[in-house]
Design a protein around this nucleic acid. Sequence first.
DNA 1: TACGGTAGTTCAACCGTGATGAATTCTTCG
DNA 2: CGAAGAATTCATCACGGTTGAACTACCGTA
Lengths: 198, 198
Amino acid sequence: MRATILAVARDRFRREGYEAVTMRSLAADAGVDAALISYYFGSKRGLFAAVLELTLNPADVLASLLEGELESLPQRAIRALVAGWDRPETGLPLLTAVRAAAADPALATLLRGGLQREMVDRLADRLGGADARHRAGAFVGQLGGLVFTRYLLAVEPLASMTADEIVRTLGPALRTTLFGPVRRAATGNDHARGPASA
Amino acid sequence: MRATILAVARDRFRREGYEAVTMRSLAADAGVDAALISYYFGSKRGLFAAVLELTLNPADVLASLLEGELESLPQRAIRALVAGWDRPETGLPLLTAVRAAAADPALATLLRGGLQREMVDRLADRLGGADARHRAGAFVGQLGGLVFTRYLLAVEPLASMTADEIVRTLGPALRTTLFGPVRRAATGNDHARGPASA
DNA sequence: TACGGTAGTTCAACCGTGATGAATTCTTCG
DNA sequence: CGAAGAATTCATCACGGTTGAACTACCGTA
């Protein structure tokens, strides 16, 4: 039954968010008494955390991003992020996760740890140099800003810009964060315009 | 009594957050029956919204930022933001506001509207040019990222960087967002290093 | 085969939450 | 004074997560 509860919970959490899903209704959905959830997961939050650990494993996406050439990381990162968050199947769970983390310090700690370990530290290693960690932090912070304003708050115009437009407006800034304001040796696509468009 | 309730609520919300403050305890604090809160504000959320409107008026800060010269806006914006959010008296209420907005769509709408009207639109006007609105959106998004990662999640290293360090690492990126990757005509402090430091 | 223990599962109840509607007091003004 | 209406309280509701006791099912062992 444990697995059933977990599966049902995953589905409903991602669809309806944390607060909207009640333990009783969840139990009913899984054909089980509500107390059983507490028995297995300790609390509603425990259940949610279990669902998170099950769902939240985009570490491999990150890895593949860092394997590519550093010069194009900004565009690739933006594209991957937007792709992941725009698709409801993957975006909704991420969104509810972040929402919950914003409200619950314990979950925030979980998310924070993940971000530091899987993103900041790795990127800093890859970057190297004196203030690598600072630059990596700023990079992650800027991507976090995208999540925050575009997906969590849906502030215009960011909320309805296309991936290309975001790459065009935010890409250069990310590049500056990684490599500094000075243009590197010309690489040929210095302007990093997205694929053909007006 | 309305004013008393509002005052007590403001204090406790900023200190303990939205969920932790219960209507009964709040009523007791204000020397009033809990039902009176509903009578005046309709609901707990209504009360919170009232508190928000009372508290959240940093529109003037924004205005003064936009009045200064555009070239130095990035540094000044970062400094103002960090100053406001680092001081507990002003930072805590902002934080609980954002937290609540992350959880509650209605409050998110409120915040979103404010950000668009008071920040994006104004900045876009000041910037001018073809994609002014896009650049303004990205600018606000990057500042939002600072709020999100440094204050909401407290991701390192951003969480413990000094204002100077943030200006150094994030400033150039913001400048790129506003003016593009090409350096403008030399202004004398091209590197925008913060005040004397290592 | 009977026994005992342990994991799985349900049941009933607890307590705290926000909300509501009727009942009461307090003001105010004709 | 005496209504009218606002302000305030009281009692109560429905619903949330959680808990402890009870019941069941299984599995190894004497």
